[in-house]
């Protein structure tokens, strides 16, 4: 009568289960390269004070090309900019800026998007109608136009950038969550939860949310990459964080006019941001295989 147990219970808790799925990433070399790139930049951000040769805002020798010997006996490996700041040091310190603002902005967009998406998908009806129309409206703006409008109107500061990203990205997150919730809310286990009298809050966050994490993690990686680009673009257009602290986009903006004569000044921050975004995109690709296809 009793059915024989076929598989050993290896995975105990959902979180451990998720972690062990993520660890499958080692089978995707694309994902591993992505993870390595990200680890590289995170390490740089943490160890910036230890490894950066100069203070990022110190003005030393202007217009030095890469490899020039510095007056203190060191070398400007990546050269200096037009007012003599060491580009290597600024790229390293700039990692901190981007790795603080991009994840913060993305997280805040997710927090809002998830709550709105759960509400729209679970309650449906007028709640869904209102939220979906609003997100359609935001998403109908060309995204950069929206950022420019917000920054021009409210001024550029770290907080405003985070708020702008949240405002512009949360509707996208909401749409994804809503779609997933609409699929899950008709499953029988949700009916079972309703039948034992669970509150909507419990059902949304305990019964539904854990089951949408796979697609959300993958989307989160891609979106983080896109937010990184956005912050870079704003800096590049001169709408980013106020100087003088190093920010990759800002560095490109400041030296852009000299790009034809001294390309190295803008080139290295460009390569930095591209490799970070590439890392995120590759990681997302690897995670997609591991979390969604399995």
């Amino acid at each position: 009568m009793t059915e024989v147990i076929s598989k050993p219970a290896t995975r105990r808790l959902p979180l451990v289960g998720l972690l062990s799925r993520v660890l499958l990433l080692r089978e995707s070399w694309v994902g591993m390269i992505g993870a390595a790139l990200i680890v590289f930049w995170v390490l740089l951000a943490f160890t910036a004070p230890l490894i950066s040769p100069y203070h990022p805002n110190a003005t030393l020798v202007p217009y030095a090309v890469p490899g020039t010997a510095a007056p203190d006996g060191g070398t400007f490996w990546l050269g200096t900019d037009h007012i003599g700041r060491d580009i290597l040091s600024r790229v390293i310190w700039g990692t901190r800026t981007v790795l603080v603002y991009a994840p913060l902005a993305t997280l805040s967009a997710y927090a809002l998007g998830i709550v709105l998406g759960l509400a729209a998908g679970y309650y449906r009806g007028w709640m869904d109608e209102v939220l979906s129309r609003f997100s359609d409206l935001v998403l109908s703006f060309p995204v950069l136009v929206l950022y420019i409008l917000i920054i021009v109107r409210f001024g550029s500061s770290g907080l405003n950038i985070i708020l702008a990203v949240t405002f512009a990205s949360a509707p996208g997150v909401m749409r994804i969550v809503r779609g997933l919730v609409l699929d899950i809310r008709d499953r029988d286990y949700i009916a079972a939860a309703q039948m034992r009298g669970e509150s909507p809050w419990y059902i949304m966050f305990v019964e539904i949310l854990p089951n949408v994490r796979g697609p959300l993690i993958v989307d989160g990686c891609l979106r983080l990459g896109y937010v990184t680009i956005t912050i870079g673009v704003l800096g590049f257009l001169g709408l980013g964080l106020p100087p003088p602290d190093p920010d990759w986009g800002g560095m490109i903006n400041e030296t852009r006019s000299m790009a034809m004569a001294f390309p190295h000044m803008a080139l290295f921050p460009c390569l930095a941001i591209s490799s970070l975004v590439l890392g995120l995109n590759l990681l997302a690709d690897g995670l997609r295989e591991v979390l969604l296809d399995a």
Partner: peptide, 26 residues
Amino acid sequence: SLFSIVTTSVPEFASSVILAALFVFY
């Protein structure tokens, strides 16, 4: 697939700088 991931990872402002450096400067 890999090629298209790489190209979408380089934002327009970065590829502008990189391509300008290559085709214009060098």
